[in-house]
């Protein structure tokens, strides 16, 4: 078997693949955070909980009503997205104009509630969700084995990332969003319903997180606390990339996943810490982040 840097090539590529998969999830989650931050100027601390809800809803819908993966892929994000819109309408809206710290704390409280309630109902042990038949097996490449589902995750994540980027940068609705980011008051003056736009934006950001949750359901352990640890990593990713651009969030997410994957090969004990260390280094060298615009 061929070796690279003293490591079997299959192991190296295997970890690289896992890294890219993790990176895809980081990218999806930080993308949602960036979309919400753009217009609402808040960090959604409930983002991890929304990701978890996406996965939980998928499993629950299957167990209770036999709703399959393909329907869940659309339905679960919609359900969670509607929940997000309600959350914005009834809670977040009440503190607009206050210090942004408060919205962070509010969403943190919401996350604690969602996570706590679900933990009481379902427990913290993982729930099983079996992969659809069609994804059994995988591509046999020269240097590694690529399971179909992993390929699917990467493909879908990239599709959603690109779709979101396209919508925000190239469409009319996206131009409203970008205008709102610059000056919401002026846009209101032009007769655009800004409060509605804000609700929908929050709902959309949350939908992306829930979508990531559905993608995660067949490969990760689905449980009520699955969102909290990944969220902290995503925060670090966001700090590294800077909130400045959608593309930046995507690239940084993938990159960090790959770095984490490589660390697992060469120094496994260190792998859960490496992204945080990258964050420290980036902050010392370039405080505004790799793609950040603000000082």
């Amino acid at each position: 078997m061929s070796m690279i840097l003293g490591v079997p090539a299959a192991v190296l590529f295997g970890q690289l693949l896992l890294g890219i998969i993790n990176g895809a999830f980081y990218a999806l989650l930080s993308l949602g955070l960036a979309v919400i931050f753009g217009l609402l100027k808040i960090i959604n601390f409930a983002h991890g909980a929304m990701y978890m809800l996406g996965a939980m809803v998928t499993v629950i819908m299957f167990d209770a009503m036999g709703i399959n993966y393909w329907v869940a892929l659309v339905l679960a994000p919609l359900v969670v997205g509607c929940f997000g819109v309600l959350l914005e309408y009834f809670l977040l809206r009440r503190i607009t104009g206050q210090d942004h710290i408060y919205s962070l704390l509010l969403t943190f409280g919401v996350a604690l509630m969602i996570q706590g309630i679900l933990t009481n109902i379902f427990g913290v042990s993982g729930m099983r969700y079996s992969m659809p038949e069609i994804f059994q097996g995988g591509f046999k490449l020269d240097f590694m084995f690529l399971p179909y589902y992993r390929a699917w995750v990467i493909f879908m994540a990239l599709l959603v990332c690109f779709g979101t980027w396209f919508m925000i940068e190239k469409t009319k609705l996206g131009s409203y969003l970008r205008a709102g980011t610059e000056d919401a008051q002026l846009m209101q003056g032009f007769g655009i319903n800004v409060p509605l736009l804000i609700s929908l934006t929050y709902g959309f950001g949350v939908m992306i997180a829930a979508f990531a949750g559905v993608l995660a359901a067949p490969i990760y352990s689905v449980n009520p606390v699955m969102g909290s640890n990944i969220l902290i990593v995503v925060f670090a990713v966001v700090v590294i990339g800077g909130m400045g651009s959608i593309a930046g969030a995507i690239i940084t997410g993938l990159l960090m996943g790959v770095i984490e994957g490589f660390t697992k090969v060469f120094y496994p004990e260190f792998s859960s810490a490496v992204i945080f260390l990258v964050m420290v280094v980036v902050l010392l060298i370039r405080p505004s982040g790799l793609f950040g615009k603000e000082a």
Binding site: L91, I95, Y102, L106, V110, Q115, G116, N120
Partner: peptide, 20 residues
């Protein structure tokens, strides 16, 4: 006993919304 977290979360939300 098992509801400490959701209750703390609810207090968080209430405090932020109603009496900062």
């Amino acid at each position: 006993g098992d509801w400490v977290d959701p209750i703390l979360g609810a207090i968080f939300v209430l405090t932020v919304i109603a009496f900062r």
